[in-house]
Computed example of a mutant assay.
Amino acid sequence: MQLLFLLHYAFQKLQDELVLAPQYASFPLDEYCFQVRHHTELNGGCKVISDPCQEHIRCSCNQFDFSGFLCRHVLRVLSSSNCFHIPGQYLPNRWCVNALSSTVHSERIHYLQSLTSELVAESSEIEE
């Protein structure tokens, strides 16, 4: 198992959702579907579909699709299903520290390559 370190912003967002998750109740509708709503609400809420064998989970609020962060509804279902890890596909590389360093490294390489080709092009035009 690879250990991932989240950027401060990503860690804070995930932590905020983890803190709110216990305030929600999770009601199984069938084997893979749950209704999740705030403990003070009697109706409504979000529908979470979870397939633990495929490590696939999706919430009707679509927060992950919009922001890249798992929502409190999904985290509540994972917790109530005794799942003690977040599947890797739900921790996007852009929120991980090592992704930042590889992006910076890639940008430096690209910059040096373009600078080198510019120098070679200019030197081929000069006769000296």
Rank of each mutant, 00 (worst) to 15 (best):
S79R: 13
L7K: 06
R37E: 03
Q2R: 09
C53Y: 13
A121H: 10
C71T: 04
A121K: 13
H105V: 11
A121S: 12
S79K: 11
Q35V: 03
Y24D: 07
A25P: 00
C46G: 01
P28F: 05
H38W: 06
S81E: 15
K13W: 08
I109H: 08
S81K: 14
D65F: 10
Q12W: 15
F5L: 12
V36D: 00
S117Y: 13
S60M: 06
A10W: 03
L115G: 05
Q15W: 14
P92C: 09
H56T: 13
E127R: 11
F84M: 05
A21Q: 09
F11D: 12
V74F: 02
Y32N: 11
C33F: 03
G45K: 04
L20N: 05
S114V: 12
S60C: 09
C59M: 03
C96D: 02
N43G: 00
Y24Q: 04
Q15C: 07
E41T: 02
H38A: 02
H8W: 14
S114C: 14
L3E: 12
E107K: 05
L14P: 01
F5S: 02
Q35F: 02
S114M: 14
N98K: 09
D51R: 10
E118V: 06
C96T: 07
L14Y: 13
H8P: 04
Y9V: 02
K47R: 13
Y9E: 13
L119H: 14
L112T: 03
E107S: 11
L7E: 05
S123R: 14
G45W: 08
E31Y: 05
L112Y: 15
N43A: 05
C46F: 11
L112F: 13
L3K: 10
F11Q: 10
V19T: 13
C46P: 00
D16E: 15
E31N: 09
V120S: 04
I49E: 04
N43E: 15
S102I: 15
L20S: 07
L20A: 06
V120P: 00
I57V: 15
L42N: 10
L6F: 08
H73P: 00
S106D: 10
E17T: 01
L18S: 11
S101K: 08
A21Y: 02
H73Y: 13
P92L: 15
S67N: 10
K47L: 15
F84H: 10
E128K: 08
N82M: 09
Q63I: 11
